[in-house]
Design a protein around this nucleic acid. Structure first.
Length: 505
RNA sequence: CGGGGCGUGGCGCAGUCUGGCUAGCGCACCUGCUUUGGGAGCAGGGGGUCGCAGGUUCGAAUCCUGUCGCCCCGACCA
């Protein structure tokens, strides 16, 4: 009857990490590839609930830093995108274009597009240009500044190869767009939002990140500076989890976003943009989950506790269910993080084992099994998702400590993720070591290897070529590093620039 | 865009080379009984016309032609 101990997810992370990732998403019912629309995903209720929690927390953080929400059109006139040269270069190859506004029956009875548009629209891949057009109309005087607006939206980028949450043709995100009177103020805004993202990643997602600046080659098309937070996944690859761009006056010049300053001088605004997307859900999955499926940090979990009633007869049921319901109410009266403890009572007609496994795979932090034996002792049998630990605990003690237990789990997940990153980060100062670090033992079936490498470097075409060959990228130059002189690992040239290198998603 | 592969119940597949009874199997699903504290067992049951179109044939999932879609590798991917 008892099955041999087995992991819920197959393959394991060690066996095949990319496939494991797919299977975790499937087993946790987070999302699926749309069978009808190429490259797009269906986000299922459990996955969407995680995104909603992310939204709720971030939205409050944005408002606490003075931002307001607004909404701009899904479509952008083709000519808007053309205005900023680097911007065109970056996005032209992956745009969905709307050319008609009507369907008519064709000769074979099938519908064909009709009513061609005078100027085609593109579906926004990002909204700098369409939002900038509004800003140009709204701003006249320095008194109109700053504009601090965020938009929650979907965007479309016609990607060749997609992966659930990490890169999909359509995805959900927020994009902040701000306009300022001075360069310093805009730079401050850019850095402030980078800090907000890092705060969110570390304190809510329990995902340690490195804040850094992107090199020229990795910059947002049209930006003067791009900052990002970079996280390490369990396969030791890097994930860019959020970006904050200082756009200088590049966009304001081509869009005529200008104002009169105190001296009556006409000036162009300094603008910024910043965003995080549903990719964060992918980051959350790959940071914490194990070979039994998803693990959700409690502060973002849609449900913190699932109560699993156990009974054999109607008679037992009539005893167990009321006990569970009152336990649920008591737990829900407890506060956790910035809300209450979220509890679900799972009274579905399924076998106990199967039911328990479903919640394990979905990453619910705590499972409380309650049967007649527990009730006799006024206790529950508690399982922790993060450590796998299970033990009986008195009901009153459980209720009294649930909040601190969740906090302990949240902190533990962060520490575990940080150890993984720290253990797989090293300073490298010679090229042979660099190559060895990033070269798999078995090229046919690459194993988990490498990690983050901190190296002095200069950016040259030859260096880019070598990195490309190794499939390694410069993730960022961390902010707040103390300046020191070193030697470029690749060219031997003296430099003070020190960056984080890694394979990346 | 170049190379390779695949379309058969919800999912995963066999059958195709060598056309032939009513198109099978596993999982999932439904019902009943026995079970139930880490993924249950037995019995019964529902569901597919074989991607699509045309052709060859007494007969096509199977052969031929065309077409559509998807996947993998490469290229590409702020």
């Amino acid at each position: 009857m008892a099955k041999p101990p087995k992991n819920a997810i197959s393959p394991t992370r060690e066996e095949d990490y990319p496939e494991w990732y797919q299977q975790v998403i499937k087993a946790a019912e987070l999302a699926e590839n749309s069978p009808d629309v190429r490259g797009c995903m269906v986000i299922r209720p459990w996955g969407y609930a995680i995104w909603e929690n992310m939204q709720r927390v971030l939205d409050r953080m944005f408002k606490d830093t003075g931002h307001v929400n607004a909404y701009f059109p899904l479509f952008i006139p083709l000519s808007f995108i053309e205005r900023e040269a680097a911007h065109v270069e970056g996005f032209a190859k992956e745009c969905a274009v709307v050319t008609h506004h009507r369907l008519e029956p064709g000769p074979d009875g099938k519908l064909i597009p009709a009513g061609p548009l005078e100027e085609p629209y593109i579906v926004r891949p990002t909204s700098e240009t369409i939002i900038g057009a509004s800003y140009a109309r709204w701003v006249q005087s320095y008194r109109d500044l700053p504009i601090l607006i965020n938009q929650w939206a979907n965007v479309v980028r016609w990607e060749m190869r997609t992966r659930l949450f990490l890169r999909t043709a359509e995805f959900l995100w927020q994009e902040g767009h701000t306009a300022h009177a001075t360069r310093d103020e805009a730079i401050h805004e850019t850095r402030q939002m980078l800090d907000v993202y890092a705060d969110f990643a570390e304190n809510y997602m329990a995902m340690p990140v490195i804040k850094g600046e992107k090199t020229e080659g990795e910059r947002f098309p049209g930006a003067v500076q791009t900052y990002a937070i970079e996280a390490m996944m369990q396969d030791r690859k890097a994930l860019q989890a959020g970006t904050s761009h200082f756009l200088g006056q590049n966009f304001s010049r081509v869009q005529e976003i200008k104002f009169q300053d105190q001296n009556g001088q006409e000036e162009y605004c300094w603008t910024t943009s910043w965003g995080v997307s549903t990719r964060l859900v992918g980051g959350l999955i790959m940071t914490h989950s194990d070979d039994d499926g998803l693990i959700i940090p409690p502060r973002l979990a849609p449900k913190h506790v699932v109560i699993l009633p156990i009974y054999r007869s109607d008679e037992e049921r009539s005893q167990v269910i009321p006990y569970c319901e009152s336990l649920k109410r008591e737990l829900e009266a407890q506060s956790f993080s910035d809300g209450k403890v979220e509890v679900m009572l799972d009274d579905r007609d399924l076998r106990g084992g199967e039911k328990a496994w479903q919640h394990i795979k979905k990453g619910v932090p705590l499972r409380a099994e309650v049967g007649p034996k527990d009730i006799a002792k006024n206790a529950v049998f508690l399982g922790r998702r993060d450590t796998g630990q299970k033990q009986g605990i008195g009901r009153d003690e459980f209720v009294a400590t649930v909040s601190s237990l969740l906090t302990e789990m949240q902190d533990g997940l962060f520490r575990r993720a940080k150890s993984l990153r720290d253990d797989n980060t090293r300073d490298i100062d010679n090229l042979d070591e660099f190559k060895a670090y990033f070269t798999p033992q078995d090229a046919e079936r690459p194993e988990i290897h490498g990690g983050f490498a901190n190296c002095y470097f200069v950016e040259t075409p030859e260096v880019d070529e070598l990195l490309k060959k190794l499939k390694v990228t410069i993730r960022c130059v961390p902010v707040g590093q103390e300046e020191a002189a070193g030697t470029c690992v690749f060219t031997g040239q003296p430099t003070t620039q020190r960056g984080v290198f890694a394979k990346a998603y």
